[in-house]
Every structure is written in structure tokens, then in C-alpha cells.
């Protein structure tokens, strides 16, 4: 599903003394099946922006179009087309068992039969790497934090949304769970049937996944383009520089000092490979 955000402006409490402008004139396009990263500090409008994608907020001005159709015209089914995993999603778990919690929306709001629901729950759990046999009948509150997060993400994936939005998916996860989330997103990107939006104030771990990167600062677009271009463009900006992933800064600074590294050498491995080649060695050690 293609996402097109057109001159989006959002004010909280418009027309009162509490009026706050959260987004000003934000525009971008994500083609179907591509991965967008939204980078910005706290209060930059990231969460406000993604709440427009599934109709939790409506624009003060401007439009949000999915496949050319305004989100406001989608009606109640929109929440299942655009799955949004909000911050700390493990806090939304409530049902008696993991299986019931993941399948809650399917059981209550769709006409799918039991077999189809089981199949979908199984698929979602497989995607996020949750062992349904082991935890399916347990209470979600008895799980570890990493498993809770996976359960919550499965609860969104089970709707098989065309657009998947994740708000700060890495916050509070230990390194192995983090690697699981990256693997999950990479797998979905390879399958290519979903548009993915990743929101984070620390884009480092996700850089290699991204097709494009949008940088927000105080509700306005600072930069939008391919991750390489955006990072290179903002590396000289003394304020925005602090938000960029350290690896991207390193790549940029090396390139600027004359090292022949590609602007998209965003993993330690590729960067090391290129530097080793430059240093004259023929191969990289294990």
C-alpha cells in the first residue's frame, strides 16, 4: 500500500490558550512494499505523525492518502489495514491467555472461522519468533518483557495489515530480542508485500533496512530521501548531527577525509570490508 502524506499540519487544542503545533506542513511518499524510517528527537512530532496513518488523529490541515484514498474515508476497517505498534505495546495485553490476546481482534471484529484464526495466530507467532506451543496457554502477564513485546506485535500482525508501523520498537529490549525484531522486519521487507514505517530516535540498528529516511525536527521535515543522502546531508548540521546514527556519521566523516567508502556502508561488516580493501589487505578475517 502506498502512503502519501500531503502538507500535513496538526495542532493540539486548536483555538484555545493550550494550542500547540505538533506538525507543520509535512509531506512525503512511501511506495508500496518499501521501508521508511522516521527519525527525530522527543517532541519532534514522530508519534503525532504516525497516529494520522491509522486515523487515531485527524489532520488540522492537509491529507493522508493510502493507495490514493483519504484515510478519513476508510471507516472502521482502517485499524486492521494499517497496523500500528505503539510505544511499549506490551502494556496493551489484557486477555487470559497469549492465544486469546493475539486473536482478540480476529475473534471479535471479523467473521473468520476458528481454523482460519488459529492459522493466522500461528503465522503471526512464527513471524515474531514466539513459541506458541510453549506460551499460547499462559497468561501474557507471566511472560518476559521480550516475549510480551513479541505477543503485542503478533496481536497487530495477526490482522495481516498492508501497512505496519512500529513506534520505537527497540526501546527497552535486550540485545537478543532486538536482533529478533530486526530479523522479523528484514524478513517482512524481503517478502515485500507490506509497507513498513519504523519510528525511532535511534535509527542505528534499522539503517540497513530502510529504503528512505525522514528526519523531523520540531514538527517540520528536516530532510527526506535515501538514508545515505539524508545522513550525508545532515552530518554537517551541528544540531541534527546528534540525532544521526554513529555509524552513519563515521561513514560520512571518513568519506569527507578522502577514504573511498560508500555512503551506504551502514553495517560494521561492510564498512570494515571496504576499509580493509582500502588498507591493501586482500581479505577480511572471520
Amino acid at each position: 500500500m502506498e502512503i502519501r502524506v500531503d502538507k500535513l499540519t496538526h495542532w493540539y487544542n486548536p483555538g484555545t490558550s493550550l494550542q500547540v503545533s505538533a506538525l507543520e506542513d509535512v509531506s512525503f511518499i512511501v511506495p508500496a512494499g518499501k521501508v521508511l524510517g522516521i527519525l527525530g528527537g522527543t517532541g519532534s512530532g514522530k508519534t503525532t505523525l504516525i497516529k494520522h496513518l491509522n486515523g487515531l488523529l485527524t489532520p488540522t490541515q492537509g491529507r493522508v492518502l493510502l493507495d490514493g484514498k483519504d484515510v478519513e474515508t476508510y471507516g472502521p476497517g482502517l485499524g486492521r489495514k494499517v497496523g500500528v505498534v505503539l510505544q511499549r505495546p506490551e502494556r496493551q495485553l489484557f486477555d487470559e491467555t497469549v492465544f486469546r490476546d493475539i486473536s482478540f481482534v480476529l475473534r471479535r471484529f471479523t467473521a473468520l472461522d476458528q481454523a482460519e484464526i488459529s492459522l493466522r495466530v500461528r503465522r503471526a507467532c512464527e513471524l515474531v519468533g514466539l513459541d506458541l506451543e510453549a506460551v499460547g496457554d499462559r497468561s501474557p502477564h507471566a511472560l518476559s518483557d521480550g516475549e510480551k513485546r513479541k505477543t503485542a506485535i503478533a496481536g497487530v500482525l495477526v490482522n495481516e495489515p498492508d501497512v505496519l508501523v512500529l513506534d520505537e520498537p527497540a526501546v527497552g529490549l535486550d540485545p537478543p530480542s532486538m536482533a529478533d525484531v530486526i530479523r522479523l522486519l528484514d524478513g517482512m521487507k524481503q517478502a515485500g508485500d507490506r509497507t513498513i514505517v519504523i519510528v525511532s530516535h535511534d535509527m542505528g540498528p534499522f539503517l540497513t533496512l530502510l529504503d528512505s529516511l525522514l528526519v523531523l525536527n520540531a514538527g517540520r521535515v528536516s530532510a527526506f530521501g535515501s538514508p545515505g543522502e539524508v545522513c550525508a546531508g545532515l552530518s554537517d548540521d551541528p544540531v541534527m548531527r546528534n540525532y544521526l546514527p554513529r555509524l552513519a556519521l563515521l561513514v560520512h566523516d571518513l568519506a569527507e577525509r578522502g577514504f573511498p567508502v560508500g555512503l551506504d556502508a551502514f553495517t560494521i561488516e561492510t564498512l570494515a570490508e571496504q576499509l580493509v580493501v582500502h588498507a591493501g589487505h586482500s581479505e577480511v578475517g572471520p
Binding site: 485499524g79 481482534v105 471479535r108 496481536g155 497487530v156
Partner: peptide
């Protein structure tokens, strides 16, 4: 409410 709506609860 937002979190549940975001997973499709109506």
C-alpha cells in the same frame, strides 16, 4: 484506547 485501536479494536 489508542493502543487497542491501533491493533484494530473498534
Amino acid at each position: 484506547i489508542d493502543a487497542q485501536k491501533a491493533r484494530g479494536v473498534d
